[in-house]
Write a protein that binds this DNA or RNA. Structure first.
Length: 485
RNA sequence: GGCGCUAUCGUCUAGGGGUUAGGACGUCAGAUUCUCAAUCUGAAAACCCGGGUUCGAUUCCCGGUAGCGCUACCA
């Protein structure tokens, strides 16, 4: 039994987008499932659109997702001799021929045909040129491209691992270009040459290549070589059912990273876009995926990318994550947003951990720690307008909060029970509902109407900071305070 | 236009000749009360249409429709 070899072949003409990431993931899962080899190949034969820095960005995204590879990256731009060798082999054997048709002329013919609603296929002008004719044209220095000589009859079929049997009349396939007039290989040539050279056994790629596959199979035949097994993956669409693109907002893996999405959550989400494990579980670890992954069970229809579900899944991962694992991630987020203080790993370590634990259950993304959780990591936070409007209506609140601060500072122990009793006693004495005080205090401590339970917030902040913030809030609440709502 | 592929709740999907068509996200309502999230309970929500095969099609076949893809000297 020959070794199973798959490849992921991104083109560095953009960042790694979620569709590409899912293709990479499915390749990876399939290979890991069957003890195969993952090969990474960079398809950079389009010199105009390919950018080296994008290659690095793609590599970074793959690594971030936790998708590793065993061989490569191979760069197609460094393998041109291979493609030319294959090209001349095909030409020598009569499976390819030089075409001298000027591109603009072909363009014109194509447009004419289109205008007349006629199907257009390369008309074969140069297909049967005699050798002397060819020699003459070459002598004239006319530029030429190399075209594949497609059989004019018969049909090409293959069994796709996800789509099943696909059949196409050869007459539908035109004599496509293998080598451009500048000597650069086209995609069809380079993929086949590379997949052959790298001994790829399974080609797993986007369904946008489904229609190209017969062309490539014809090339395998012409090179009298066996063809790999093909598996095409349905496309990922935006909410409007159009192919996912910049229009839809974030499409790149990096954009989700920047939004505070965890790589394990994105991986899980992408895996379930087009495949479901036998048990129907939603949260699936990479180990479980590898164990259960099956291309034959993959969906055949396109899938809409739903950011809402991703967000939910991310919150699940956040919530289930052990604190020790979460801490460094939050630290990273705080560093990015300028909220990190070295004290959090020193004197204030306990407070830092308490805060993270408190925020953990309600966080949807890592961004929530630095945004809605801001007040836990810095004294520099605003009192939100909405919060003041909602909970700072009562005029005597300033006095009450001052009283509360006073009493809290005299508490024998600053724990959950005592602080709560302290506040409720005060509320009772003043003849108000505890909620009034609780909500007002929450705004004072966090600046927000929405935050974790008040007494837990107090504990996470510590007595000193709690008292100080309550007094500050009282001052902000006083009629004389300039920034009163 | 030609060719190819696809079609189960709004979305991701399970299922499959006889099912109350299952789950998840989202939505709505209720419980909880300290705001929100979480949690719990409940609800609304789907087999694209038409033929055929069959005792019986959502499931199998054909046609239609729709969507997507390919139709480059892009990948």
């Amino acid at each position: 039994m020959t070794e199973l070899r798959v490849r992921f072949a991104p083109s560095p003409t953009g960042y790694l987008h979620v569709g590409g990431a899912r293709t990479a993931l499915y390749n990876w899962l399939y290979a890991r499932r069957h003890a195969g080899t993952v090969i990474l190949r960079i398809e950079d034969t389009d010199a105009d659109r390919s950018k080296p820095e994008l290659t690095q960005a793609i590599l970074d995204s793959l690594e971030w997702l936790g998708l590793d590879w065993d061989e490569g990256p191979y760069y197609q731009s460094e393998r041109l001799e291979l493609y030319r060798a294959r090209a001349s082999q095909l030409e020598r054997q009569g499976h390819a021929y030089p075409c001298f048709c000027p591109p603009d002329e072909l363009q014109k013919k194509r447009q004419t045909a289109e205008a007349a609603h006629r199907a257009w296929k390369y008309d074969g002008t140069c297909r049967d040129l005699s050798e002397p004719d060819r020699a003459r044209r070459r002598a004239q220095g006319r530029p030429w491209a190399l075209r594949f000589r497609t059989p004019e009859s018969g049909r090409t079929a293959f069994d796709d691992l996800v789509f099943g049997r696909i059949e196409l009349e050869n007459s539908e396939i035109e004599d496509f270009v293998l080598l451009r007039s500048d000597g650069q290989p086209t995609y069809h040539l380079s993929v086949v040459a590379d997949d052959l050279d790298l001994r790829i056994t399974h080609v797993i790629r986007g369904a946008d290549h489904l229609s190209n596959t017969p062309k490539q199979i014809l090339m395998y035949h012409a090179l009298s070589s066996s063809q790999p097994v093909f598996a095409h993956l349905p496309l990922i669409l935006g909410p409007d059912k159009q192919r996912l693109s910049k229009r839809h907002g974030a499409t790149s893996v990096g954009a989700y990273r920047d939004q505070g999405i965890l790589p394990e959550a994105l991986m899980n989400f992408l895996a379930l876009l087009g495949w479901a494990p036998p048990g129907g579980k939603e949260i699936v670890s990479p180990e479980e995926m590898v164990e259960q992954f099956d291309l034959a069970a993959a969906s055949k229809s396109n899938a809409v990318f739903d950011p809402e579900k991703l967000a939910w899944m991310n919150s699940e991962y956040l919530r289930r994550m052990p604190l020790e694992a979460l801490l460094p991630r939050v630290r990273g987020e705080l560093e990015i947003s300028g909220l990190w203080s070295s004290a959090f790993s020193g004197s204030e370590r306990q407070r830092f951990e308490d805060s993270v634990r408190l925020l953990q259950t309600r966080a949807r993304t890592l961004k929530d720690f630095s945004e809605s959780g801001r007040a836990f990591f810095t004294d520099d936070f605003p009192y939100e307008l909405e919060a003041r409007r909602k909970f700072w209506k009562e005029s005597r609140l300033a006095d009450w909060l001052r009283d509360l601060a006073q009493r809290l500072s005299n508490l024998s122990s600053f724990d959950l029970e005592q602080t709560e009793k302290c506040l409720r006693d005060l509320a009772e004495e003043k003849g108000i509902r505890a909620g009034v005080l609780i909500n007002a205090a929450r705004v004072g401590l966090t600046g927000q109407a929405v935050a974790p339970g008040l007494f837990e917030v107090m504990r996470a902040l510590g007595r000193e900071r709690t008292v100080r913030r309550l007094e500050r809030a009282a001052a902000a609440l006083a009629p004389s305070a300039p920034d009163r709502a």
